[in-house]
Simulated scan of single mutants.
Amino acid sequence: MGQIEWAMWANEQALASGLILLIGGVVGVAGQFRDWEFAAYGVAAGVFVILLEYPRGKRRKGTTMERPGQWFLAAVVKLFGPLTRNYYVRAILHACLAVPGGFILPTVLGTVNLGIASLIYLLAAFRKEEWRPIQAAQTQKGHVGKSIHQPPTNPPPRPPAEHRRKQMDDGRTGAIEVTATP
């Protein structure tokens, strides 16, 4: 069985916690909660976490689905080098960002989730994982027509190849004939 890549879990957890922190901060500011300044901090921290965590990192093995429009933010994250690539730094950063949100009720859930993401990033760092950008997929300029001998004529689901050969030999095409009766 393969090893779990903890950074992928941490990325999803941190992105969700950034959204929750942002929403909780907006609720705290709009609701004029006591000490609403912490809620305003939650809005700023939520936006920062979302921008940092939106670009996914490349997996060690297999393919990684790129999020829509992540190429721009990935370039920004890549620009900061070891400050954003290293998961020890991300774990400490998320832990520090989570503390002030715990002082007001609307941002507590985002704070707890960000703390959990921090722990998962710490585990990923212990496992020697590191953020790497997803490279743009290279387009193949080969001729596709050579690999396709004859495109299928029947819509899916198609019968197995043996049945298709028999149908072609018998002269049946698989189409249903409709005749009108007067």
Rank of each mutant, 00 (worst) to 15 (best):
L73Y: 02
T64M: 09
G31I: 06
L22A: 07
W36Q: 12
L79W: 07
E53S: 11
G46K: 00
E130I: 07
S17I: 07
A74L: 06
R56P: 08
Q150M: 12
L114D: 07
P151F: 04
E130S: 08
G31V: 08
P55R: 07
S147N: 09
E66L: 12
H163K: 14
Q3P: 06
G81H: 09
A161M: 14
P156W: 12
R90H: 09
G18A: 02
R90V: 09
G57K: 06
D169S: 09
H94E: 08
E5G: 05
A10K: 05
M168F: 15
E5V: 00
T153Q: 15
P151Q: 06
N11H: 00
N86T: 11
M168C: 12
G57P: 04
P55K: 10
H149F: 15
I92C: 04
M8L: 15
Q167C: 10
H143F: 15
N86F: 00
V26P: 06
Q3C: 08
I120Q: 03
Q150K: 10
L79A: 14
H143V: 15
R90N: 13
P182I: 04
L52G: 00
E53K: 01
R132H: 10
A91T: 04
M65Y: 11
L52I: 13
L22T: 01
W9K: 07
A91E: 03
E12I: 06
G145H: 02
A75K: 10
W36F: 11
W6S: 01
E129P: 08
G42I: 01
D169P: 00
P157R: 10
P55W: 01
G115E: 05
F103C: 11
L51M: 13
R85E: 11
A10H: 02
K166L: 11
T107M: 04
R127A: 12
T153P: 01
G2F: 13
A124E: 01
L119I: 11
R158D: 13
P160V: 14
R56T: 07
F103G: 10
W36T: 09
Q140Y: 08
K61I: 14
G46N: 09
G102W: 05
E162D: 15
V47A: 07
K141M: 13
H143C: 10
T173W: 14
R34V: 15
A137N: 08
G25N: 05
H94W: 03
